[in-house]
Simulated assay, not measured.
Amino acid sequence: MTQPIPNPSGRDLTTPTSDERTWAILGHLAAIVAAIISVGWLSFVGPLLIWAIYKDRSAFVRQAAAGSFNFNLAVWAAIIVGWIMFFTVILIPVAIIVWVVAVVAALWFHIRAAMAANRGEVFHYPWGITILR
């Protein structure tokens, strides 16, 4: 059995408050909102801001925002690789596939993560470039 991760407020992660669940949901969905507003270029800003504000207040929110941020870096890397392939001209079909997979994966996993946060569960993204913890 694993030990619960202590929260700065002294509680464990197994019982996040309603406020913590709300901010964790926002940490996951902020990436989608920021991507829509910035046409995909600033999807990491929302989770980064939430992580910066809540990193010392709530381990649950910190983990949600950090996971979202790290996952967005991997999606960003895939999109940049797609652009590099696009400019080689011969790999345009592959670039389009990479973009579609990256966007669909981003939507799918962020929505699943937000639903898990709503239930008070920690969501682990399938891949990511670990920068924030």
Rank of each mutant, 00 (worst) to 15 (best):
H110N: 12
V101R: 10
I5G: 06
P93Y: 00
I111P: 05
G46Q: 06
A78V: 09
W127G: 09
W51Y: 10
F109P: 04
N72R: 04
L48S: 01
A66K: 05
A95Q: 11
I5D: 09
P93Q: 03
E121P: 00
A113C: 09
L48T: 07
D12E: 12
L132W: 08
N70V: 01
I32S: 09
Q3T: 15
I129M: 09
N72Q: 14
Y125V: 03
D19N: 10
L132E: 06
T14P: 05
A113P: 06
A74K: 10
G82K: 07
V45Y: 03
V33A: 09
A105S: 10
I84G: 04
I80N: 10
V61C: 10
S18N: 15
L42D: 05
G27F: 05
V101H: 07
A35K: 03
R11F: 15
L73W: 10
P126Q: 07
W99R: 07
I97Q: 05
I25S: 05
P16M: 12
N72V: 03
L26Y: 13
V104D: 09
V98H: 00
V94L: 14
S43I: 08
P47K: 10
E20F: 05
W51H: 04
A30F: 01
L49P: 07
V39D: 06
A113T: 03
F60M: 04
S38H: 03
A117R: 06
D56I: 01
I37G: 00
T2E: 13
P47I: 07
I32L: 02
A30H: 05
A34W: 01
N7K: 13
W41T: 07
I111F: 12
I92H: 07
V61P: 08
A52T: 14
R133C: 05
A59G: 14
A66L: 09
A64V: 13
L26E: 14
V75F: 06
A34D: 00
L49A: 09
N7Q: 12
A74R: 00
L49Y: 11
I25Y: 08
A34V: 04
W83F: 15
G67M: 09
V61K: 03
I5W: 04
T130S: 14
N70E: 04
I129G: 05
L29Q: 06
D12I: 02
V98S: 04
L132Q: 06
F69W: 03
A77H: 08
N118K: 15
Y54G: 01
V101I: 13
W23D: 08
A31T: 01
W99Y: 11
W41M: 14
S58W: 00
F87I: 11
G120M: 12
A117P: 07
A74M: 11
S38N: 02
I50M: 06
D56V: 09
V33F: 10
R21P: 01
S68G: 12
I97K: 12
A117V: 08
I96E: 08
S68I: 10
V104L: 13
A114M: 11
P8W: 03
F87S: 11
I111Y: 01
G40K: 01
R133M: 11
S38L: 03
A66I: 13
F71N: 00
